[in-house]
């Protein structure tokens, strides 16, 4: 009796959150899921009849008449995943030592550094990426500097290559990796680090057996937050990528905006989402296992 009333009250309390999630997350998702099984309209939009060749085009059982299997989609998906993984790795390697360094700064400089890290959020991503374009182009800042120093004779071809894309994504994602890492490092129990050394563990052993496991939640958090938007990112490859830097997000964008094939774009989105979800589930369950009983 009391329990039923409680759950009624709970339901009432949760209603706004449910409504919010429903309207802003679930509904669009359902529309995309639905569209991915519909027939593309001749001039954009959809026709309301079931059609599974959207997925067929991607995975290789297209009907061969209207839709043709093109392995390029899987290749681009694979490229996107590896670019995202590389972005996670590079941001992690960059941010992890810096997080330790920052956590040891005096309070004033620490706050200043954290402010600097969030500074990019105050300006437009597009503008910042165009700045990178100016830096990386053959007559840009980087090449002029390197040639001026006599380190290279020919301008480096960085712009419109995969390198430029990963560089741009690393640049965009660094704050997202840094903040969770910093939180974990700042929370690290210094006494445990000292206990480890007191018990005879040298610095490497202490890092592997105490520091790394203790900061693992931050590493996982940062990796997830960087990986998800990286896989679907289309702005960075748009500006810095060229043909060889094309990512799955660009494909989706093209399907919706220029090719006007909404169902195919929806199908691509659904594929990205399921791959990302699978990767996440595997990562989270494995982290659970290794960090079981943590905290």
């Amino acid at each position: 009796m009391a329990i039923r009333r409680q759950s009624a009250i709970l339901g009432l309390l949760l209603a706004p959150a449910t409504l919010f999630l429903g309207v802003f997350f679930l509904l669009p998702l359902l529309i995309i899921a639905l569209f991915s099984f519909l027939t593309p309209g001749l001039y954009g939009g959809v026709e309301w009849s079931f059609y599974h060749w959207n997925y067929g085009r991607i995975f290789g059982w297209a009907d061969g008449i209207m839709e043709v299997f093109e392995p390029v989609y899987l290749r681009i998906l694979w490229r996107s995943l590896s670019f995202a993984a590389l972005t996670v790795l590079v941001t992690l390697l960059l941010c992890y030592p810096v997080a330790f360094w920052v956590s040891r700064l005096p309070e004033r400089s620490r706050l200043f550094f954290l402010f600097l890290i969030t500074l990019p959020f105050f300006s437009s991503l597009i503008v910042r990426l165009y700045a990178w374009l100016l830096i990386l182009k053959p007559t840009g800042f980087l090449n002029s500097a390197l040639m001026g120093l006599g380190l290279i004779a020919q301008p480096l071809e960085i712009l419109y290559t995969p390198t430029a894309v990963v560089l741009g994504m690393v640049y965009v994602m660094v704050p997202f990796m840094f903040l969770p890492l910093y939180a974990a490092v700042d929370n690290l129990d210094r006494a445990q680090v000292e206990a480890s050394m007191d018990l005879g563990a040298n610095r490497v052993q202490t890092f592997l057996k105490v520091v790394l496991p203790q900061t693992l939640p931050g590493i996982m958090g940062g990796a997830v937050i960087v990986f998800i938007p990286s896989v679907g990112n289309f702005i960075v490859p748009d500006i810095l990528g060229g043909a060889k830097g094309l990512m799955i997000g660009n494909l989706v964008e093209q399907q919706f905006l220029s090719a006007r094939n909404w169902p195919f774009g929806s199908a691509l989105s659904m594929v990205i989402m399921s791959v990302v979800l699978t990767v996440l589930l595997v990562a989270v369950t494995r982290a659970r296992k290794t960090g079981a009983g943590h905290a």
Partner: peptide, 13 residues
């Protein structure tokens, strides 16, 4: 030599 820390500093993981 070894130390017993005031906060114990046991490894939680």
């Amino acid at each position: 030599l070894n130390t017993v820390f005031q906060s114990y500093a046991l490894f939680g993981h």
